[in-house]
Simulated assay, not measured.
Amino acid sequence: MTSPISAVTSAIAPPAVAEPIAIGDTSAATSASGLSFGSIIGSALENTEKVQDRASQLAIKAATGNEIDVHNYLAAATEANLTTQLTVQVRNKAIEAFNEIMRLQG
Rank of each mutant, 00 (worst) to 15 (best):
A28Q: 08
L45A: 09
S6Y: 01
A32W: 09
T26I: 07
L58Y: 08
S27G: 01
S36G: 12
N47W: 00
N66S: 12
V17A: 11
A59T: 11
A55L: 05
E67C: 10
V51W: 07
N66V: 03
A63Y: 07
A22S: 10
L58T: 02
S31H: 06
S31R: 06
P15K: 14
A11G: 03
G38T: 02
T9S: 05
Q57N: 14
P14C: 01
T26P: 00
T9Q: 03
I5T: 10
V51R: 15
T64L: 10
P14G: 05
S6R: 06
I12M: 10
S36E: 14
P20G: 03
I21Y: 06
S10Y: 10
A18M: 09
A18S: 07
G38N: 12
I68D: 06
G24E: 07
T30I: 12
I12G: 01
I68R: 08
A29C: 03
I60D: 13
A62P: 04
A55N: 02
A18R: 07
A13P: 00
G65I: 11
E19N: 08
I60Q: 01
E46F: 08
G42E: 13
S27W: 15
D53S: 11
T26E: 13
I68Y: 06
I5L: 10
L58A: 07
L45S: 02
A16I: 03
A22H: 12
A32H: 09
K50T: 09
E49C: 02
I12L: 10
A29N: 06
T30C: 13
K61T: 02
T30E: 13
T64H: 01
A28S: 10
L58W: 07
G65A: 05
V17F: 15
A16E: 12
A7G: 00
A32K: 13
I12K: 02
S56M: 03
I41L: 14
L45R: 15
F37V: 11
P14L: 05
A55E: 01
I60K: 12
G65D: 05
A16F: 08
A28I: 04
N66T: 02
E46H: 14
S31L: 06
T9N: 02
Q52H: 15
I23Y: 06
I40D: 02
A29H: 04
G38Y: 04
L58C: 04
S39R: 13
T48M: 10
A18T: 04
S31N: 13
A16R: 13
G42P: 01
T26G: 01
A55M: 05
E19R: 14
I21P: 00
P4L: 08
N66R: 14
A16C: 01
T30R: 12
I40Y: 01
F37W: 11
V17T: 08
A16V: 04
G42S: 15
E49P: 00
R54E: 07
S56W: 02
T48C: 04
S43H: 14
N66A: 10
V51Y: 08
A55T: 05
G42C: 12
A32Q: 14
A18K: 09
I12E: 00
A11L: 15
A22I: 08
A32E: 14
L35P: 00
G24C: 09
S6K: 02
A59M: 09
S43R: 14
P4A: 14
P15Q: 11
K50S: 11
E67L: 14
S27I: 03
G42Y: 10
E49A: 15
T30Y: 12
P4V: 12
S43F: 10
I68E: 06
T9C: 01
L58F: 06
